[in-house]
Design a protein around this nucleic acid. Structure first.
Lengths: 246, 246
DNA sequence: CGACCCTATGTTGCATGCAATGTTTCGGGC
DNA sequence: GCCCGAAACATTGCATGCAACATAGGGTCG
């Protein structure tokens, strides 16, 4: 008995399944739900006050995205990414980001250059003025997103977006570092330079190099000592950002 | 009231949703369902003698795979791929197949070399002895599949598999050619040579080149005169391979 | 003859019931 | 105290009902 039904503005925007998906995905990417946490369809349905159908759909999408795995009779669990996964993920990402940078270089126009520069400079200011994990990640993602948008290849974008999601998940459980943020921006700057110089080959190399270095730094950090990860397996209420109880 | 229920051997093998998905995917890839054909959930459910739930799930997976698109209140339709899609698809595929070839080269062992050689030679025999569209496509897919299997990168495989599906769909609606089959095998042979020589860089280049040439040949063929494609939009019974009515 | 409204039809997304199946736990026997 | 069996429990996948909504088609009125 839903108190009120979300209206469907034709282009499925606020369908329950979508909202459930977005909410859960957000929780996973924001590390509010951690690898190993169980995703019980019935429990989540009750929590969100909706039926199991849309929740089931959302969970299946998460699984399809590689953000969760399906454990036969124990509900789905948030995916656990190990170091090998990360290596593989970044190997693919290296090739794809390189390609994106090359394509983007060939399609760059003044408007996009300005947007890229603005993003980059804001990111540089951010990193220079202390370390804000959340903001850094946002800026980083925005930068890469803009590049693949400029590249203008639907299928490349889709593939990259998948990789990004999983990579993001990996970062959460394995690593975080202020120093890395600085290096990331520096490397972004290098890709930007090659792109605005119109050198597609160099842009491709720089972008690939950026991801490769990311992978190496990540491996080293993990080898040195992985983040402690408290193991929990029970369902908790989705930790809200700040939720007035209704 | 299903006459009999498919048993679930834990590792979801013969679930109704899976079977529906496989059946529909097969129909699309085999061109029995063509771009533009409508996929009505209720109709398909009746056809297969199951309820709408698993069918709905299957259709959503197809959409997620890019093999179908969602038209708001008219049911889903088999995706239509135009030339631009193909170009984009093959651009990405070029990078990924190249990467796969490089990785595979680094992990090759005697067993895999033998398997590759066997596949290749069978393919050469096939092409030399006339043209069998179906068999050619099978061999081609098997070859690429084996390479990405040897490459041993889960996420790369997943990405490539997606691309493959859509590319396959594109080939059906746009193109077929005996000459192309010959060239494909020849280029496969070149990749194989580089791989067995242990030259990962050359393998990557050869694989990329293979896909790039494919893309070019495809574009030219389409420009010269696309295959006639009868437009149909009604739901027909899934054309069975050879179906005794029950 | 054309524009318009109104109904019939088809699709969609959600809720819910249910049987099969696997897991976990708890109690009893050794 | 430990092992084994059984029942309670949770999850799963499928079937089905249903109300909202959109489109198409036809009949009517101007």
């Amino acid at each position: 008995m839903p108190t009120e039904r979300a209206v469907n503005p034709v282009t499925g925007g606020s369908l329950l399944a979508d909202r459930a998906y977005e909410e859960m995905k957000g929780a996973v990417l924001a590390n509010r739900l951690r690898p190993g946490d169980s995703l019980s369809v019935p429990a989540l349905a009750v929590q969100m006050g909706i039926s199991r159908s849309p929740v089931r759909e959302a969970v299946q999408r998460l699984i399809h995205d590689g953000l969760a795995t399906h454990v036969p009779h124990r509900g789905a669990v948030v995916a656990t990414v190990d170091l090998e996964d990360v290596r593989q993920l970044y190997t693919v990402r290296e090739a794809l980001e390189g390609l994106a940078a090359r394509l983007a270089t060939e399609r760059l126009d003044a408007t996009k250059v300005a947007e890229l520069r603005a993003l980059l400079e804001e990111h540089e200011r951010l990193v220079a003025s202390g370390y804000d994990e959340k903001r850094h990640i946002e800026m980083d993602m925005a930068y890469h997103r803009l590049i693949r948008e400029v590249a203008g290849n639907t299928h490349l974008s889709a593939a990259l977006e998948n990789i990004h999601g999983k990579a993001h998940l990996a970062l959460h459980s394995l690593w975080r570092s202020p120093e890395a943020a600085r290096l990331a921006v520096e490397e972004h700057r290098r890709v930007f330079a090659a792109m605005t110089a119109g050198d597609a080959e160099a842009a491709e190399r720089a972008a690939g190099e950026h991801i490769r270095r990311l992978r190496i730094r990540l491996s080293q950090a993990v080898a040195a000592g992985p983040e402690p990860r408290p193991d929990r397996s029970t369902v908790r209420p989705l930790p809200e950002e700040a939720a007035p109880e209704s």
